[in-house]
Simulated assay, not measured.
Amino acid sequence: MLITPVLIIGITVISVLYGTKEISIETIWQALFDFDERNADHQIIRTSRIPRAIAVLFVGAFLAVAGAIMQGITRNYLASPSLMGVNDGSAFVITVAIVFVPGLANYQMILLSIIGSALGAGLVFGFGAAIKNGLSPVRLAIIGTVIGTFLSSVASAIAMYFQVSQTVAAWYNTKIHIVNTDMLLLSIPFGLVGMLIALFCARAITVTSLGDDIAVGLGQKTKLIRYLSMIAVVLLTGTAVALVGKIAFVGLVIPHIVRFLVGVDYRSIIPCSILVGAFFLSLCDLVSRFINYPFETPIGVVTAFVGIPFFLYLIRSRGGDRHA
C-alpha cells in the first residue's frame, strides 16, 4: 500500500501529459506556469485535462469508500452504490430536476443528487426489509438491479418526452471528458465531509461488521452508526454522480481488494480504499482514452470489464453468505 501514492502521482502526470491531442511537454509547462488564455492547447490543459485528472481521483476515492461502508454496515459482500440503487437514485432526481427545474446552480444539482442517492438507497433497503430474506446478498442485489432499472427507465421516458435526452445522457453514460471546473470545486467539500464521517465511524463499522449481537454486547449504538454511515454513503455517491455521472463497480471491487490486502479493520480499509479507488479509476480513465485511440471509450465499459467477472466470481464463491 505504501507505493500507491507514488502510483497515483505517476498516473495523474501521465493523464495530463497524454490525450487524444498531442501536446508537447513544453506547452504543458507553459500552460501551468505561464498561462495564455488565447492558446487553445493551454485551454485544453487548464480546463480539460487537469480537472479531469483531479475528478477521477476524487470520484474513485468517493465510490470506493461508499462501497466499503455499505459492505461493512450491511455485512453484504455485494453491497455497492451501483448495485443498490444509490447511483440510479441520483441520476433519476437529476433528470427530473433538468426537466422541471432547469437552470439550477451547481450546488443545487449536488444537493439534489445527494437527495437522489438517499431515495435510491431507501427504496432498495426498504423493499429488502419488507421481503423475506430480502437483505441476503443475492436478493438485495436483484432488488437493487430491478429498482435501479425502473428508475433509469422512468428517467429515460421523462427525458425523451421532454426532449432532453442528450443532456441527461451525460449523467447516465458519464461525462468525465467534460468535467465542469466550478462543479469540481463545489463537489470536493461535500465529498470530504462524507470522508470525514466515514473515518469517524471506521472503528464502529468494524464492530458492526461482526454482527448486531456482538456490536450491541460491546455497547455500540448500532442504529446511530448505520444512520451516520448511510449519510456518508449518500454524500459520497451523490457528489460523485453530480460531478461525472454514473460509474459502476468501483464501490464493489475496491473494498474487496483492500480487505484482502489489509484485513477487516475499517480503520485501515477506509483510508486504503481512498488510495486504491483513486488509482483504479485513474487507470481506467487512462485505458478508456487509448483502448480505441484516437476515439475515447466510455469509462464505464472499462470498469465493467473488471467489475462483471468480479461480481460473478463473488456470487459463485460465496453464494448466499451474508457476511462481508
Rank of each mutant, 00 (worst) to 15 (best):
M1Y: 15
P5E: 13
V6M: 14
I8Q: 07
V13H: 05
I14V: 15
Y18E: 07
Y18I: 09
G19V: 08
I23C: 09
I25M: 11
E26Y: 14
I28Y: 06
Q30V: 05
A31P: 07
L32P: 06
F33W: 13
D34L: 13
D36L: 15
R49S: 11
I50D: 08
R52W: 03
A55T: 13
V56T: 15
V59L: 09
F62R: 00
L63V: 05
V65D: 05
I69Q: 04
M70N: 05
Y77E: 04
L78W: 07
P81S: 08
L83H: 01
M84F: 12
M84G: 00
G85L: 04
N87I: 09
S90P: 12
F92M: 03
F92D: 01
V93M: 14
I94E: 01
T95M: 11
A97C: 13
I98T: 07
V99K: 00
F100L: 14
F100A: 12
Y107Q: 12
L111K: 04
I114G: 00
S117E: 02
S117W: 06
A118K: 00
A118P: 00
A118L: 14
L123D: 07
G128E: 09
I131K: 14
V138Q: 13
V138H: 05
L140F: 06
I142V: 15
I143G: 01
G144F: 11
L151S: 05
S152N: 08
V154Q: 02
V154K: 03
A155D: 08
A157L: 15
I158A: 08
Y161Q: 13
F162H: 14
V164H: 01
V164F: 03
S165P: 01
A170M: 12
T174Y: 01
V179K: 11
N180E: 13
N180K: 13
D182C: 11
S187A: 15
F190V: 07
V193E: 04
V193P: 01
M195Q: 04
M195C: 11
A198H: 00
C201H: 00
T206P: 05
T206W: 10
V207F: 09
I214E: 04
V216T: 12
G217S: 09
G219N: 03
G219E: 06
G219I: 08
Y227G: 05
L228Y: 06
L228S: 10
L235P: 00
T237S: 12
T237Y: 08
G238I: 08
T239M: 11
T239K: 10
V241G: 02
A248V: 06
G251T: 00
V253H: 05
I254Y: 04
V258E: 12
R259P: 08
G263Q: 10
D265W: 09
D265S: 13
I274E: 00
I274Y: 00
L275A: 08
V276W: 06
V276Y: 03
A278C: 05
F279H: 04
F280K: 01
L283Y: 07
C284A: 15
D285F: 08
F290G: 02
N292P: 02
P294V: 10
T303M: 12
P309K: 12
P309A: 12
L312G: 03
Y313A: 10
L314A: 09
S317H: 13
S317K: 15
G319S: 11
G320I: 04
G320V: 01
D321L: 13
